[in-house]
């Protein structure tokens, strides 16, 4: 059974965005486990579904080294342009 916060899709997404924006000064990429702190009462699999939905909706984006994957707000931190692609 998921928490009320996680069940309310809009509130859950807002909580994620707010948390990421708060952190934006020091960090832009986060491990999946970092999101567990936003939903302390929920199971990892349920949190993963919300966060991945946000990637699908282009609110978040993945960053991958090839071995590890991290999540960040779309457009935040190192982007294509800084990699010389734009």
């Amino acid at each position: 059974m998921s928490s009320d916060l996680l069940n309310d899709k809009e509130a859950a997404q807002k909580a994620v965005v707010d948390w990421l924006e708060k952190k934006a000064g020091s960090k832009t990429k986060f491990y999946i486990k970092d999101f567990y702190k936003i939903f302390p009462d929920d199971k990892p699999r349920e949190i993963k579904k919300v966060v991945n939905k946000m990637v699908e909706n282009e609110i978040l984006e993945f960053w991958s080294s090839g071995s590890t994957t991290m999540y960040g707000l779309k457009g935040a931190g190192i982007q294509h342009s800084s990699e010389g692609e734009e």
């Binding site: 491990y31 999946i32 486990k33 990892p44 699999r45 993963k48 991945n52 990637v55 993945f62 991958s64 071995s67 590890t68 994957t69 999540y71």
Partner: peptide, 8 residues
């Protein structure tokens, strides 16, 4: 296809 784990 959708990363959910601490690592590989």
């Amino acid at each position: 296809h959708r990363p959910a784990f601490p690592y590989k």
